[in-house]
Write a protein that binds this DNA or RNA. Structure first.
Length: 156
DNA sequence: GCCAACGTTGGC
DNA sequence: GCCAACGTTGGC
């Protein structure tokens, strides 16, 4: 059964433009167990993903991607020259996993965090809750549909 | 750039 | 196992 997700990326590091240009990208660098578990245990090929820009001028959802592989070990954990190198991880027992993410489309407009926060229908959505730092999270079907409904409305 | 919130580490 | 110190995330 199709599941929905949201994944955060800092656009200065990897933006929706970058994903559109490359087509498919290994979602490397995740070093949070909860986020890893969602990728490893939750995601299936074909699941849909909101692409979210974080730590930027207008944080918000900017596009839609899809899961393009099952989880496999994140190669950056083995590379001493990589910022995400993890000396405690081994190839026999890799600690960090990733999935490939494929571009699907941009949204017609950015649906900003500010807009999501002031929407009463999204009060329980983890993204808008105070202190949330999770970079990979599930999105309930109703929430997914509600947010997509915002795309064509109002501002932008 | 600041800093609140949160996760991880390590001493005990 | 507790918890203080530290590092990171990410909005503002």
């Amino acid at each position: 059964m199709m599941q929905y997700w949201l994944m955060k990326s800092e656009p200065e590091t990897f933006s929706i433009d970058d994903l559109e240009r490359k087509g498919t990208e290994p979602w490397d660098g995740v070093r949070n167990y909860q986020a890893r578990n969602f990728m490893r245990d939750g995601m299936r090929v074909g699941d849909k993903v909101f692409f979210y820009h974080s730590n930027c001028e207008v944080p918000g959802i900017v596009g839609i991607a899809k899961v393009a592989s099952e989880a496999y070990p994140d190669p950056t954990q083995f590379d001493p020259d990589n910022a995400h190198f993890d000396p405690a991880s081994t190839r026999a027992q890799p600690r960090w996993m990733l999935v490939d993410i494929a571009f699907e489309r941009r949204l017609a407009r950015t649906i900003s965090l500010a807009e999501l926060k002031q929407d009463p229908a999204l009060a329980d959505f983890a993204l808008v809750r105070k202190g949330n730092r999770l970079s990979v999270m599930p999105v309930e079907t109703a929430v997914w549909k509600h947010i997509l409904g915002l795309e064509k409305t109002g501002r932008g």
